[in-house]
Simulated assay, not measured.
Amino acid sequence: MNLRRFAVGLSALLLFSGVADARGLLSFIAQPIEHELYGSSFSSGDALALYSKQQQQQTFDACAGSFPAARPFDLSKVQGSMRPLALCSDSFAVLYSQTTKTPLVVVERLTASTIKSAKGGERTNVFFPDPRIPKSGRAELIDYKGSSFDRGHQAPAGDAASPNAMAQSFSLSNMVPQDASNNRTTWSKVEADVRKFVLRADGDVFVFTGPIFDDGHRTIGASRVWVPTRLFKLVYDEKSQRAWAYILPNAETRIERPVDYAAFVKQTGLHLLSNLPISGSTR
Rank of each mutant, 00 (worst) to 15 (best):
L3C: 02
V19S: 10
V19P: 08
R23M: 10
L26R: 14
S27M: 10
F28A: 12
I29L: 11
A30I: 04
E34C: 03
L37R: 14
S41Y: 12
S44K: 12
L50F: 08
S52N: 10
K53C: 07
Q55C: 02
A62W: 00
A62T: 00
A64C: 02
G65Y: 08
D74H: 09
L75T: 10
P84W: 08
A86Y: 07
L87D: 01
S97F: 07
T99P: 01
A118D: 01
G121M: 08
E122Y: 04
R123I: 09
P134L: 09
G137E: 13
P156A: 11
D159Q: 02
A165K: 07
L172M: 09
L172N: 08
M175F: 06
P177L: 10
D179P: 08
N183I: 05
W187N: 00
K189I: 11
V194A: 05
F197P: 07
R200Y: 00
R200S: 11
F208K: 02
G210H: 04
F213K: 06
F213H: 13
D214V: 08
S223R: 01
S223A: 11
V225Y: 01
P228Y: 00
L231A: 03
F232D: 00
E238A: 13
S240A: 12
R242E: 07
A243I: 04
W244Y: 14
Y246E: 02
L248H: 13
L248W: 03
E256C: 03
V265T: 14
Q267T: 09
H271M: 11
L272V: 11
N275R: 14
S279Q: 14
G280Y: 11
